[in-house]
Design a protein around this nucleic acid. Structure first.
Lengths: 182, 182
DNA sequence: GCTTGCTATGCAACGAGTTGCATAGGATGA
DNA sequence: TCATCCTATGCAACTCGTTGCATAGCAAGC
């Protein structure tokens, strides 16, 4: 129900094609909103039909592309949405289910889960490292930022805080799993 | 693709009807896996057809109900799933999108967003309070727990850590929003 | 020269998840 | 007594999101 809005924000920050948006969703925006290219292309066409964005055909590149920009109606839609109440997040934390499920498996299954949690922990460690690198690169001087960068920065700080929290919790999980059965 | 597994874990912890499961998903399990009663009823029927669970008709109560329990085949499915790699979480954080979107609205819109973040913060404060109350009630003596309770407890500690992280971040967000435009 | 990979877009089919509505008995309260 | 709420289950219709596949030109490497 809100992929449209994530796309509006992304296009306002920087106009671009469906392909470019898909790449951004793998990086920056994808930290808090995921989408496949299929979904993005479909929603872009609908947004264009509804008059929220306009496309400019760019025939220079190897394959031609359609670069989208937000128009007035799109800005209005965004402004209205910003005033709507924030929906409670729909959490889907598969690992938490597995941890509680570990009570119903045998010792070999738990050993396998420990290994899986370690692997999972490594991916979050890598994500944190990426965020910190990106922070040093994009926000080297927190004192001298315009509004847009300050807002992007505070969202990134949220991502960093999340990853640190997850890492600390996963250590707690590993201790707990290893200490089972006395 | 994994509501089945969340249901298996919940039914292993405690057999119950579709309605009871729906209530649990609003409380305990719903902290990390959401589902409506519609979805739960549909999946339960499929799981019964597939022979993962069996239903017992309970005709005593006001409306009759079907109480489900996990059978051997269901345990096997769960054990296999526990060994599968954990999928990276698909994050959907609407508030983060709105914060970045605040760069493209006017002063009145930002004031409205501050109020909304404060309301949102209050809901998370209430959630944290509920978790802490539940922790004192369900896990008063961390030294003397069986495996199932230790695992439930570590998942709850994850929820508590998450809520604390969110609250601290929302304070950061409020400071940032209030400090915009110098 | 051939394969592989990247940019760039899209169709078709399916499965997951939501929303609105319906039923029906029992309890609670004005 | 009548309205409202809670337990308990379910249908139908819809939208959201994923997966597999297809196309097509250009670049890079073997």
């Amino acid at each position: 129900m809100a992929l449209e809005h994530a796309i509006l924000v992304s296009l306002l920050e920087q106009p671009g094609s469906g392909y470019e948006l898909a790449r951004r969703f793998e990086r920056s925006i994808g930290r808090f909103w995921t989408a496949t290219h299929q979904q993005i292309y479909r929603v872009l066409r609908r947004m264009e039909t509804d008059g929220w964005i306009i496309a400019e055909e760019v025939v220079g590149g190897r394959p031609d592309k359609r670069s989208y920009s937000v128009v007035e109606a799109g800005r209005d839609v965004l402004a209205t949405w910003l005033r709507d109440p924030v929906q409670p997040e729909a959490v889907r934390h598969e690992l938490a289910v597995k941890i509680r499920g570990a009570a119903f498996t045998d010792a070999a299954g738990r050993t396998a889960l420990v290994a899986e949690v370690e692997r999972y922990r490594a991916t979050h460690e890598a994500t944190l490292a990426r965020y910190l690198t990106g922070e040093r690169r994009d926000f080297p001087d927190p004192g001298a930022q315009d509004d847009q960068h300050r807002l992007q920065h505070v969202v990134l700080r949220g991502g960093i805080a999340y990853e640190r929290m997850v890492l600390a919790w996963l250590d707690d999980v590993l201790d707990t799993l290893r200490g089972l059965g006395r």
